[in-house]
Simulated scan of single mutants.
Amino acid sequence: MIVRAAAEVFEESGYHAASVAKISAKAGVTQGALYFHFKTKQAIAQEVMHAQSSFVQIPDEGRGLQRLLDVNFYLARELQRNVLFRAGVRLAVEQGEIGIQDASAYQGWADQFHEILVEAREEGELLADVDEREFAQVLVGAYSGTQLYSKVATGSVDLIERIASLWRYLLPGIATAEALARLSVRPNWAEPRG
């Protein structure tokens, strides 16, 4: 309850303008109760940052590279419409301003992407020289940069298209010709182009 309320306040106001009073009011608890669970506003922000993956339900459909693409598009759509997830991502990006240095949120996504890339290897979809763990980390960095650029440029309106562009350039460097022929670099909910 407190973490969700804090996420909403951090997304609405940013870290510096978010006060413990605003967070406790949003959560419907006293400031004393909030301080019982979290000693500082920074601790609350860290918890929101760490909880970002719990604010989304990653689809468990498909395997291999198509699943990785679909998960990336799903996350992009969630960033556009899910305030709680967006708050966690925002705090991870702005953590220097908060006074922390914690890569665990990024590492969590890299670990999830790594698992899917291992599936892609098992399916024979990856080129021989692709290191699944290294590419998972590259993907988190590229995705994060693309997401941030979209947020600054258009308020994330064009995030889906930017993620599609990212993948059009990344896939030839990691996927076999056979896999490339069957992969769709479009969100599964998108309308076909005319």
Rank of each mutant, 00 (worst) to 15 (best):
residue 2 I to S: 08
residue 3 V to L: 14
residue 3 V to N: 10
residue 3 V to P: 14
residue 5 A to Y: 02
residue 5 A to P: 13
residue 7 A to N: 11
residue 9 V to C: 14
residue 10 F to P: 14
residue 12 E to F: 00
residue 14 G to T: 01
residue 16 H to E: 12
residue 16 H to Y: 07
residue 17 A to V: 00
residue 19 S to K: 10
residue 20 V to H: 01
residue 23 I to G: 09
residue 23 I to V: 14
residue 23 I to E: 09
residue 28 G to I: 07
residue 29 V to S: 05
residue 31 Q to D: 05
residue 32 G to D: 07
residue 34 L to F: 01
residue 34 L to M: 12
residue 35 Y to H: 15
residue 35 Y to M: 09
residue 36 F to S: 08
residue 37 H to I: 03
residue 38 F to P: 12
residue 38 F to Y: 15
residue 42 Q to G: 04
residue 44 I to A: 05
residue 48 V to G: 13
residue 52 Q to W: 06
residue 54 S to K: 13
residue 56 V to N: 02
residue 59 P to G: 07
residue 61 E to W: 09
residue 61 E to I: 09
residue 67 R to V: 13
residue 71 V to A: 05
residue 71 V to L: 14
residue 74 Y to W: 14
residue 75 L to N: 03
residue 78 E to F: 03
residue 78 E to R: 12
residue 78 E to C: 05
residue 80 Q to D: 11
residue 81 R to I: 04
residue 81 R to A: 03
residue 84 L to T: 10
residue 86 R to C: 01
residue 87 A to D: 14
residue 87 A to H: 13
residue 88 G to T: 02
residue 88 G to M: 09
residue 90 R to C: 02
residue 90 R to H: 10
residue 91 L to N: 14
residue 92 A to M: 07
residue 93 V to I: 14
residue 93 V to W: 12
residue 94 E to R: 10
residue 96 G to P: 02
residue 96 G to C: 01
residue 97 E to S: 11
residue 97 E to G: 14
residue 102 D to C: 00
residue 102 D to G: 00
residue 102 D to Y: 00
residue 106 Y to R: 05
residue 107 Q to A: 05
residue 108 G to C: 05
residue 108 G to Q: 09
residue 109 W to F: 10
residue 111 D to H: 00
residue 111 D to S: 04
residue 112 Q to T: 07
residue 113 F to W: 11
residue 114 H to I: 01
residue 114 H to Y: 10
residue 118 V to I: 15
residue 121 R to K: 12
residue 121 R to A: 05
residue 121 R to I: 01
residue 122 E to N: 06
residue 124 G to Y: 08
residue 126 L to T: 09
residue 127 L to K: 11
residue 128 A to R: 11
residue 129 D to E: 12
residue 130 V to W: 00
residue 131 D to P: 03
residue 132 E to D: 03
residue 133 R to F: 00
residue 133 R to W: 05
residue 135 F to P: 08
residue 136 A to M: 03
residue 137 Q to Y: 00
residue 140 V to I: 08
residue 142 A to C: 01
residue 144 S to K: 06
residue 144 S to V: 05
residue 148 L to R: 08
residue 149 Y to W: 10
residue 153 A to C: 01
residue 153 A to W: 06
residue 155 G to F: 10
residue 156 S to K: 12
residue 157 V to D: 09
residue 157 V to C: 01
residue 158 D to K: 02
residue 161 E to Y: 08
residue 163 I to S: 08
residue 164 A to Y: 02
residue 164 A to D: 09
residue 167 W to K: 05
residue 168 R to K: 15
residue 169 Y to G: 06
residue 171 L to G: 06
residue 171 L to C: 06
residue 172 P to K: 02
residue 172 P to Q: 04
residue 174 I to W: 06
residue 174 I to Q: 02
residue 177 A to Y: 07
residue 179 A to R: 06
residue 180 L to Q: 14
residue 180 L to R: 12
residue 181 A to P: 05
residue 183 L to F: 04
residue 183 L to M: 10
residue 183 L to D: 12
residue 184 S to F: 03
residue 184 S to G: 04
residue 186 R to V: 11
residue 190 A to T: 11
residue 191 E to T: 07
residue 191 E to I: 03
residue 191 E to M: 09
residue 193 R to F: 10
residue 194 G to S: 14
